[in-house]
Amino acid sequence: MTGTELTGTTMAPPAASPASPASPASRRDSARIRARTVRQAKSVSLNGLGLLIALATLFPIFWMVSTAFKPSQEIYSLTPSLLPAHPTVGNFDQVISGQVTGGIGPIWLFFRNSLAVTLSTVVFASILSLLASVAVARFRFRLRTTLLVLLLIVQMIPGQALIIALFLDFKSLNLLGSLLGLIVVYSAQALPVTIWMLRNFVATIPRELEEAAAIDGATAQRIFWRILFPLVAPGLVATSIFAFITAYNEFIVALTFLGQAQSAYTLPIYVTYFFGRGGAAWGPIMAASTMYTIPVMIFFLIVRRRLVGGLVAGAVKG
């Protein structure tokens, strides 16, 4: 390296200096300026790329919301505009009142169904996986490792492979058109992953804490509620998120189980139902999708830190 000023700016193009400098001092200056320009150009191009990616990623969501607020003549206009020229809540009105082509009731009914299924799944999956994760993280027993590997494999069994047997089983149990059937299936489907996630959390809690409490005479219940539970609570948040997403988004089981039982439809089934029936009523369809999507987006934004940490731990570590 000749010019010491060049250190750290090796990305600078070697040739193509525009003006021939007169003195060594001004040459140093021009090199410094050039280095700064390159740095700025790089920063601008990086930020430009970031902006482009972010806008491209946001566009479909923007388009959904924008369409939802457009009156129908604007939706089918030959020159679509980005924003509605005459924004209207008419599409939302139709969806909320249930007075929409192909509609089967006000959207709140399906919100209620989805909420009932999702919350029950979160509660069941959390309780069952907490118990199981304590077992695999704290006890040594026969087939423990086999069990953990089995859970990893079971987690990957696709719903499509099981749906035939599940349909026939739940039909004979008379649980097809009911929310209870969905809750049972979703809770079990979430378990392999939630057990793994919680196991990773329990395993990080030092065993000495519990041992010290045990020596001081605390009962097993007390140790669990006073020591283990508060420490594993962040893990429970992560598993709850996973169970929530599993249940709120699930499609194939709900599609197959609910069939014609329209009053038990969950939101995804409701949205696809009148997507299929409503002809080309894109305004109300986008309004319904928006209402279905926005809550989960807000939820993701609230829990974003835990989501990234927890789900990555769950996915990469098992």
């Binding site: 990616i53 972010a54 806008l55 990623t57 946001l58 479909p60 969501i61 388009w63 959904m64 369409t67 709120y248 988004n249 499609f251 939101l267 995804p268 949205v271 696809t272 997507f275 894109w282 369809i285 986008m286 999708s289 279905y292 999507t293 989960v296 987006m297 939820f299 993701f300 934004l301 974003r304 989501l307």
Partner: peptide, 21 residues
């Protein structure tokens, strides 16, 4: 945040939305 929102979109919403686009 943009990526997070795409990720958060339920598959059913996303499919209906892309079908429309």
């Amino acid at each position: 945040t943009a990526a997070l929102l795409a990720w958060a979109t339920p598959p059913v919403s996303a499919s209906v939305l892309f079908y429309w686009m």
